[in-house]
Write a protein that binds this DNA or RNA. Structure first.
Length: 316
RNA sequence: GCCGAGGUAGCUCAGUGGUAGAGCGCGGCCCUGAAAAGGCCGGCGUGGGGGGUCCGAUUCCCUCCCUCGGCA
């Protein structure tokens, strides 16, 4: 078969570079983008927000000038944002990049965004702030176990999977049931993602745990050198959305500004929270068996890591 | 040097003559419209070293070492 025919039949590649915070995704992906003629698409729940440059470690201006970056700075920190919106935006970006004959390279640490993009999400809206708010109040008054009991009557499958203390998920499941009349466990079965249409390759960068934690400490320090204090001050002047307010550094520095803790204590807490976050990220990625793991050596440069990924993409 | 307090988990400490706990940390896991969020599970330990009493010692006794406070 002629080469061009074969190419027409082949699914187009969509690449993901994921990994725990501070592992070095940005630099590695940039190098890969150059080698591959690719464009970067952020896969990060915080980098979508404007004004959260330092706190979310966005790619710098110089890098963005050199390589096209997408899905950065697309929403105000005062607006709520979620996976579903992200997914819709990402799908559009993929088409756009492929239309230019470039390779979409997703880069980020938000495991849920990655999974939903690859595996899909159910179509029904099922989101209703009113219902959710009411359920939240109920769970505060009566306890999440009480709502869990109710959930096991309307959606036993979901109830079995959700722990009675996990208020968020219980509320979400009940919200969906009230809004759509259908159990969430049923809706979740009907999903279609990228994997149906594209040749999806996922690479998870990792480092020796001790080294990773060291890099996390260094990153927190460098955020302060770059002016984190001022950035967070201006963020706190706004009415932050629930998601944006969750960024590591917001609460810690708010407490410090309020005189509740010293700057050193705030920094130490940020480091600890980032470590815990990195651990959860790794757990998430570990269970995804499609992922190719890329262990980064001690002195390995981003371009070397990118070369290794290139080899895995095009085995001879 | 003397007097006093103390040496128990990575840290701060509790407790008991029958081989030890708590908080934090740390590790593992779950996750489908707030995900940098939220939830679950796990003690990870030659009880400062050595000796003695006792059926049995982390707990009682002796001794040595170390830390802290006071007096010199």
């Amino acid at each position: 078969m002629p080469r061009f025919c074969k190419q027409l039949l082949m699914k187009k590649k969509v690449i993901f570079i994921v990994g725990p915070t501070a592992v070095g995704k940005t630099a590695c992906a940039a190098s890969l983008a150059v080698k591959l003629k690719g464009e970067i698409v952020s896969c990060d729940s915080m980098q979508v927000y404007t004004g959260m440059d330092i706190i979310s470690s966005k790619a710098g201006k110089a890098l963005r000038k050199k390589i096209s970056h997408h899905l950065l700075d697309i929403v105000s920190v005062e607006k709520e944002y979620n996976v579903s919106q992200y997914r819709a935006a990402a799908l559009k970006v993929i088409k756009k990049i492929l239309a230019h004959d470039r390779v979409p390279i997703f880069v980020g640490g938000t495991g849920l965004y990655m999974t939903i993009l690859i595996d899909g999400i159910f179509k029904e809206k099922g989101e209703n702030p009113e219902i959710r708010g009411r359920l939240y109040e109920e769970s505060k008054k009566l306890g999440s176990a009480f709502l869990h009991e109710r959930l096991s009557k309307v959606d036993p499958d979901a109830a079995v999977k959700i722990h009675p203390n996990d208020a968020k998920r219980i509320i979400r499941a009940l919200e969906v049931f009230e809004a759509t009349g259908k159990p969430i466990s049923l809706l979740q079965k009907n999903r279609h993602g990228l994997a149906d249409t594209y040749d999806v390759r996922v690479f998870c960068l990792n480092k020796q745990r001790e080294k990773l934690y060291q890099r996390i400490d260094e990153r927190v320090e460098s955020m302060f050198d770059q002016g984190l204090i001022n950035e967070v001050r201006s963020l706190l002047a706004l009415k932050l959305s629930k998601t944006a307010a969750c960024a590591i550094g917001i609460k810690e520095l708010k407490d410090h500004f309020g005189g509740l803790c010293s700057l050193d204590e705030a920094k130490a807490l940020m480091k600890k929270n980032s470590r815990n976050y990195a651990k959860r990220q790794l757990t998430w990625f570990r269970k995804d068996k499609r992922i190719h793991w890329v262990e980064i050596g001690d002195d390995e440069k981003p371009s070397q890591v990118a070369s290794r990924i290139m080899k895995e993409l095009n085995p001879k």
